[in-house]
């Protein structure tokens, strides 16, 4: 497949810069796949697994928040957090998942607690899912 230029930048630094053949990310309106020669496009990212094909090899990552932009053939992913599958701390994700569950099941939790716990649960689920794909 024809490769295209892909750049992934997060607040913690450059996560990836180079050639990729395919990119699938979860946007707020569902998964989007990007191949070489994609039209100019802008989409906000949701929470989910990103699949990137580099040299025929699939790599997975947890990709949360931020945006995807394709301008004149150059693809830029600007997520808030981006972790490759092998960088994810599965134990931490599991612990965070458990903590969120306890808060959600606790009848005394306040609305803000529940909102925070829901967001935490979603992030933990994404991380757990991606970590199991390595």
């Amino acid at each position: 497949m024809t490769p295209f230029d892909l750049k992934i930048v997060t607040p913690d630094g450059l996560a990836f810069e180079g050639q990729a053949e395919e990119l699938i990310v979860r946007t707020t309106s569902g998964d989007i796949g990007v191949l070489a020669g994609h039209l100019n496009c802008v989409a906000p990212l949701g929470m989910g697994r990103a699949t990137i094909v580099i040299d025929g090899q699939k790599r997975y990552a947890a990709c949360i928040g931020g945006m995807l932009s394709v301008v004149n053939g150059a693809v830029t992913l600007v997520p808030t957090t981006f972790e490759w599958a092998d960088q994810i701390d599965a134990q931490r994700a599991e612990a965070s998942y458990q903590r969120a569950q306890t808060i959600l099941q606790d009848k005394n939790s306040t609305d803000t607690d529940i909102k925070l716990a829901e967001a935490r649960l979603r992030r933990a689920l994404v991380r757990k899912n991606v970590a199991s794909m390595k």
Binding site: L39, A43, P44
Partner: peptide, 15 residues
Amino acid sequence: YIIYEPGSEEVFEKI
């Protein structure tokens, strides 16, 4: 030639 997914206003609101 720019696609806004789902729509330009929603994109702006999020981004």
